[in-house]
Simulated scan of single mutants.
Amino acid sequence: MIKLENVSVLYNKKNLAVDDISLDVERGQFVGVIGLSGSGKSSLLKTVNLLVRPSKGNVYIQGTDIGLLRNDKLRDIRREIGFVFQDFNLVERSSVLENVLVGRLGYKSSLKSFFGLFDDTDYEIAVDALEQIGLKDKMFARTDQLSGGQKQRVAIAKTLCQKPKIILADEPVSSLDLSSAQVVMDYFKQINEKSQITIMINLHDVNLAKKYCSRIVALKDGKIFFDKEVGEIDDRELQELYEKNQQV
């Protein structure tokens, strides 16, 4: 489903955020990416849909080198890759339903996108997405009236509106309390298991990663420190990952 081949990413045009990473993610996997701030987690995730273009290497989605795609062909691929941001990326003064419908814009012509024209099918998909994340009863509420956890669930519903095959989530629960974070992670897990949507998620909390993900990729200084199934990871590896990062 996702293949990164010798990918490097520069920041400030000279420093390596991601350093020669190769990675394969199979369809339906739930992959957690961990590591301290500055380890390259966000840059790695954003290369998957080319929000950040690699300075070296190739990115393949379902066997297609997406770095070679332009315009409509790249748009079509990105439509199948949902992205959930840490800061929700919602229009606070709009209703929950209006925010979720934004996920349908990738299926519209430029003119229809500009005027925000949606048909009955779009509304049905949006309502179904809200039902999947338990917020159907909030569809007409203003988004700024919701809690942080509810806003992140709206962001997930917006992503589901794209009908994605892949969901990328960049620290989606880092600003939430533990209870709200677990609710959000429960929904990610349900989506992964019921719809077989491939998920890559950056997490600061190692315990959440171990609880919800089936596989964990640990980054240190832009490189893969380990890539293992959850049951294969021992506490010494985790301690070494974080202690060594702290000494740099």
Rank of each mutant, 00 (worst) to 15 (best):
L69I: 02
D87T: 11
E240W: 03
L130N: 12
Q86V: 05
S214L: 08
Y212M: 06
G63R: 00
F226R: 03
L160S: 12
I201V: 15
L219K: 04
D20H: 12
R75Y: 06
E240I: 13
S22P: 01
K151N: 00
L4W: 11
K194T: 15
F30I: 01
N15H: 15
A17S: 04
K13A: 12
F225L: 10
Q132L: 14
Q132S: 13
L176E: 07
I34D: 09
L69R: 01
V9F: 05
Y212L: 07
V184H: 00
D19Q: 09
F114T: 09
G106I: 14
I224G: 03
E80R: 15
A126E: 10
F88W: 07
N99W: 04
G222T: 06
R79S: 00
S195N: 13
L208N: 09
K165S: 14
V48G: 06
L45Q: 14
I216N: 14
L101T: 09
T64H: 10
V154D: 03
N49E: 09
K165L: 08
S195W: 15
N49D: 12
E171G: 00
F114R: 06
V96N: 10
K228Y: 03
L45P: 05
E26M: 08
G103E: 03
S22D: 02
G57M: 03
V18I: 06
N6G: 04
L97S: 02
S174N: 02
Y242L: 03
L111C: 06
I77K: 07
D19G: 05
H204R: 08
Y187E: 15
K112W: 12
A129V: 10
L4M: 11
N71A: 03
G35R: 11
K112R: 14
I133T: 15
A129T: 12
G106W: 14
E92W: 01
D128A: 13
T159E: 07
C213I: 02
G28Y: 02
F140P: 04
R53Y: 13
G148A: 02
Q182V: 13
D235A: 15
G149H: 11
R79P: 00
R93K: 14
A126Y: 10
A141P: 00
F118H: 07
L117M: 11
I191L: 03
Y11L: 05
Q196S: 15
S42M: 06
